[in-house]
């Protein structure tokens, strides 16, 4: 138990972070059929935005914490306006492939912008809770508790927004039947803009959380983005609850495999599981029938 405790804590914390990265990715996929390859870069920039305000400019932490939300939302909106919208307008039929390539380009540009401005050396994120909690012989750093709590709150808020509010319902309607939504008066362009901004804001926050337990580097978002993509594929693209569940399960498997078999085995084992799942169920664990476009 003494040894497994930290592994469990690490697994749950990374699971929460993967889940949060997955929400942003899955929202955009579900609503627009857009695989946003720049999602990882938004995480990175979120981490640096908080670092810039808190460490470089000495802003108070409530301001620094909101910076990733604002910057992520702004860049998310810009990606829609400058990249996705023109592609959607000019070649709707090849949008799904075009946008992958285009946002991949955006990701490279953003990552290099970070490299240019901040350099490649890692920084420590100063916004983090010190100390730890001790429960049943297990040490749980307060920062890990905070991460899981923030993720749970954000997930609940997102779910509530989608299920209960007029704007959230319009997002689901657009995802489920774009033309029908238009006929009812939904301005789908504005809905898409909101989705990208929301996803960007969540990604920025996620980046701050990731950097608080690792380090800031220009490739900060790459690993969570990759994992988020894997979760989405395992659950069936667009299946939000399934992806969140997969995030926790796979993060725990990865953590225990890394502990039991050595750090370099965590990821290969994860990929092996994914490949097996896809051979067994090519449409994802929950199958095509259960795939929800939000």
């Amino acid at each position: 138990m003494e040894i497994l405790g930290p592994v469990l804590v690490a697994g749950i914390t990374t699971g929460a972070l993967y889940a949060l990265a997955t929400i942003g990715l899955s929202l955009v996929w579900g609503a627009l059929g857009m695989l946003n390859m720049a999602h990882g870069a938004l995480l990175t920039i979120g981490g640096y935005a908080a670092f810039t305000l808190a460490t470089l400019l000495g802003a108070p932490w409530p301001v620094a914490v909101l910076a990733p939300v604002a910057v992520g939302a702004l860049i998310g909106a810009a990606i829609y306006l400058l990249v996705a919208q023109p592609l959607l307008a000019r070649a709707p039929r090849s949008f799904e492939t075009n946008v992958i390539i285009a946002t991949f380009g955006v990701a490279i540009a953003l990552e290099n912008a970070v490299l240019l401005i901040f350099g490649g050396q890692p920084f420590g994120q100063s916004i983090a809770l010190p100390g730890h909690l001790q429960a049943g012989g297990i040490f749980v750093p307060w920062q890990n508790v905070l991460i899981v709590a923030v993720v749970l709150v954000l997930m609940a808020a997102t779910a509530f927004f989608l299920a209960r509010t007029r704007a959230g319902r319009a997002i689901r309607a657009t995802a489920q039947h774009r033309e029908a939504a238009q006929l009812l008066g939904v301005p789908v362009g504005r809905v898409y803009l909101q989705v990208l901004a929301l996803s960007g804001g969540i990604a920025g926050t996620c980046g701050l959380l990731v950097s608080s337990i690792t380090q800031l580097s220009p490739t900060l978002g790459a690993d969570p983005m990759l994992k988020a993509f894997i979760m989405c594929v395992v659950a069936g693209l667009g299946n939000l609850p399934g992806a969140i569940g997969a995030a926790f399960v796979l993060a725990l498997i990865e953590a225990f495999a890394s502990y039991g078999l050595g750090a370099r085995w965590g990821f290969p084992l994860l990929l092996a599981i994914v490949i097996l799942v896809l051979i067994w169920r090519p449409d994802g664990l929950f199958g095509r029938a259960a795939v929800r476009r939000l």
Binding site: A170, A173, A180, L184, G185
Partner: peptide, 29 residues
């Protein structure tokens, strides 16, 4: 739609993952 045209499309085009009630609410968007 905002100008007052109601289009009930061929094949209904309902929102499949929404309840009847939510579909109706979307009508009053």
């Amino acid at each position: 739609a905002a100008a007052g045209v109601v289009h009930v499309p061929q094949g209904d085009l309902l929102f499949p993952q929404m309840s009847v009630h939510e579909n109706l609410l979307m009508g009053a968007y």
